[in-house]
Amino acid sequence: MCSHCSCGQPAASVEPTPQHRTLQLRHNLLASNDAAAEHNRQRFAAAGLLVVNVLSAPGSGKTAILEQLARQWLPAPVGVIVGDLATDNDARRLRAAGARAVQIQTGDLCHLEAAMVGRAFDQLDNHGMELLLIENVGNLVCPTAFDLGERLRLAVLSVPEGEDKPLKYPALFKSADAVMINKLDLAEVVDFDRTAALANLAGVAPQAQIFELSARTGAGMGALLHWLSQQRQPMAAA
């Protein structure tokens, strides 16, 4: 009934005053990526694959290292899921080295996400495969937070980038199971301070295995291959 007089008309509807309220939430921004990563991890385990996420700055020699692994991991074929901004150059190089490569063209995206890797894996023939390498987008910041479902994370530091890279990008190096110091054949030319680099890595990433190598000459690749095959053994036995 009208509250102003006794006219008998229905009361005018009054817009309720919007009530400000604060909601307490606890929602992880990476939750949906993490769920997709876990799904990938289960698929990779079911397929008996050792999956390695390889991260570095652009131009540090990721593709060259992967080419060496594809040539030397015998007799099984190596799979590579490669993220590249605009070209398929890396995928073509990797196929020429004998890898089964699937390209994810990332456009402007600065990192790979687990769902993209899952879709790329759908396109990959993994029959007879033991090792699947994921070549992330060249970037030392953005890919760090995104779990792709990998078993191992490898970071590459090439000697022309300088010994202090681990101090500048600690989050990436702290998340790595192994660090490959690449382009050792250039160490003298660029005055690389090996002692300082190793000390920086020991300080920032004490958990990481260190491999010193040159993907161009092939030097030091043996130790990396041996370590990767050791990492696969517990899976093969399971």
Partner: peptide, 20 residues
């Protein structure tokens, strides 16, 4: 000792929302 476990520091969370 250099080796340690991370207890906090990687958080990326929405923890509150003010609405009306």
């Amino acid at each position: 000792e250099l080796s340690s476990e991370l207890l906090a520091g990687r958080e990326l969370e929405v923890t509150g929302l003010e609405v009306s």
